[in-house]
């Protein structure tokens, strides 16, 4: 029943996220013909960082694989998955209004309480990342293109592993603060700060967002094993810290 409770707590965040991402994935695929028509209108010489971005996006959009990676995996899904990882990771462990004392009076260990909540949230994040991404190979024939199922799976896996770091951060913060707003806002602020650093340093090798987008795989065909292992390790550490903090604290 703890699973059911976790589902009830997170279902609206999850369902809204799933609906938005499914629409977004379908939109990304179905607008490709319009994007192709607009490409000749992109001016060849635009100065500055913005110009560089426009040129890069236009260059990538000349191939369908590049377009999908750029508009979906690097942009839409990375941004949405970061947001929903934080939203799904934010829990009401300590909130009296959320029934914290009633939950603690149940004959269940605190470790199991956090574990079930984390597992439910991660499963939802997994669905949010994989299901809309799998829509892309399915819908691509509708615009006369083809996108490999394997690529969709690999990009989704990179994104899920990297986003689980933000999920773990929100989960840990939820065991520190008694309300749901501070964990949510702090985790979002951290995600935003990482994005700013990423932009400022032009996607450094150790960038979380670069890992999320699967850029290394897209450009070289190789999996970023080091980054994936580091992200998985960081996420696991944050989850263990959340369990340890929740287990040791007084109410």
């Amino acid at each position: 029943m703890l699973w059911y409770k976790s589902w009830l707590e997170t279902r609206w965040r999850f369902l809204i996220g799933l609906a938005l991402l499914l629409c977004s994935a379908a939109g990304a695929v179905l607008t490709y013909p319009q994007v192709l028509k607009l490409l000749p209108q992109v001016p060849p010489h635009v100065d500055g960082l913005l110009g560089e971005k426009i040129r890069e996006a236009a260059d990538l959009a000349r191939s369908y694989q590049g377009y999908v990676w750029s508009s979906w995996f690097r942009q839409n899904l990375t941004q949405a998955a970061s947001l929903f990882a934080v939203l799904l990771g934010t829990a009401s462990f300590l909130s009296l209004e959320g029934g914290a004392l009633f939950t603690l009076s149940l004959p269940v260990s605190r470790r199991r309480l956090v574990f079930v909540r984390a597992a439910t949230g991660l499963a939802e994040l997994f669905v949010l990342v994989f299901v809309p991404s799998l829509l892309i190979p399915l819908l691509s024939p509708a615009v006369g293109e083809r996108y490999a199922l394997g690529s969709a799976l690999i990009h989704s896996a990179c994104l899920f592993i990297a986003a689980s770091v933000l999920f773990g951060l929100a989960l840990l913060l939820s065991t520190v603060f008694g309300d749901v707003w501070r964990p949510l806002l702090i985790a979002l602020a951290v995600a935003f700060a990482l994005a700013i650093v990423d932009q400022a340093l032009h996607s450094p090798a150790l960038s979380l967002y670069r890992l999320m987008s699967g850029e290394t795989y897209f450009r070289t065909g190789r999996l970023p094993w080091g980054g994936l292992l580091a992200a998985a390790g960081a996420a696991a550490s944050l989850h263990v810290a959340a369990i340890a903090n929740f287990t040791r604290r007084d109410f």
Partner: peptide
């Protein structure tokens, strides 16, 4: 956990799941 299995509890705030 074994104690809570044999104990009924009502808290001051009656905080249940809204």
């Amino acid at each position: 956990a074994a104690i809570r299995l044999r104990t009924g509890f009502v808290g001051e705030e009656k905080d249940l799941y809204p």
